[in-house]
Design a protein around this nucleic acid. Sequence first.
DNA 1: GTCTATAAATAGATAGAC
DNA 2: GTCTATCTATTTATAGAC
Lengths: 209, 209
Amino acid sequence: MAARRRVAAGDSRDRVFAAAAAEFASRGFAGANMDRIARAARLNKAMIYYHFAGKTALYRAILSDMFGAVRAAVLAVAASDRAPDDKIRDYVAAIAREAEARPHFPPIWLREIAEGGTHVDEATLGYLRDVLGALGRIIAEGTHDGRFQPLPAFMVQAGIIAPLMVFFATSRLREKIARLTQADVTGVSREAVVAHIQRVTLAQLEGKI
Amino acid sequence: MAARRRVAAGDSRDRVFAAAAAEFASRGFAGANMDRIARAARLNKAMIYYHFAGKTALYRAILSDMFGAVRAAVLAVAASDRAPDDKIRDYVAAIAREAEARPHFPPIWLREIAEGGTHVDEATLGYLRDVLGALGRIIAEGTHDGRFQPLPAFMVQAGIIAPLMVFFATSRLREKIARLTQADVTGVSREAVVAHIQRVTLAQLEGKI
DNA sequence: GTCTATAAATAGATAGAC
DNA sequence: GTCTATCTATTTATAGAC
């Protein structure tokens, strides 16, 4: 510990939020521990309940932040004046950017998928609907221009987020496997993965596959 | 309940195994509840501990079964005398088949990815290494024939399992979203998804993307 | 806003009868 | 092999002082 930090108002809430995001990401909702979150935030449990109504509310605040950010980013992409194929590239890049900005994002999203969205509240479900809607509009635009074939938005979305989330979420697991073997598990850059998913997504929309 | 079931020896162990698989899939390791597993198996907690050493051992037995089955299936594919491109198709189909045969498979795999393989023991990690090794050999074969470009096995693997697992795991979530909106979330068949992933995987290996 | 207890409930694990 | 009862530890949540 170096110099004393100047503590702004609302700072402890941010610390709780950040610590909770990390905890939920690495242990899941049920596995997360309020006391561990408190200690990671350099606070105590009571302070969590001072800022948030409970474990579920805390988790939902994180989900809302995640998907709210993605929603805003992809709505902006869909509303831009770029060509449909550029919008698809932007769409992929936007999701990758938001995911990368939040290390907890990929694990939490993967878990919610696995769990069937058990903890997702109605408002956040609306964000997800908007995200899918934005992609649907981009596809419809490209279809109208005769450049895309009309694939279901969900299928395209799955093809984008699934490998993206898995790639971002597996850095630790890949290292673990690499330690036990000589498999070529490493050496794939973030840029290469994003570029690859952009190409694959476009190729399937343009019927090249 | 119809006629009385004839209860074979070892039957209760199977019931525990099946109930536990479903519980771990829908709630994760930490969220799984031994008492709930017992009730779903029409038994009591003590019987779980009679068959398995504890919660961790029970979970690892399920992981071992899952990845052992995948390992066996893809090793057979890699050892077959088919052409490299057919082996890739068979590889994708084999993983889809094993995942489909076990409804708990996709959620559990997704969770393990999210968690960085925390619960995976060394033996099961070996299975995963073998799976990746089999894919690596198929790619090397195709590269040697001049048909494939030498992509890292892990990247190809991620492109296969990520959308597959997400597709199989999201049936409930897709319904939930569909109920709240008119998004075209449904209407994608299992066959279409498998065929699509086969095409995309081959296209990238053959440098068509 | 922040803390120290502590209440209250849950859940993994086991003892011991049958 | 199967059960009931229980022990013990963990953990969400809150009361109340500062």
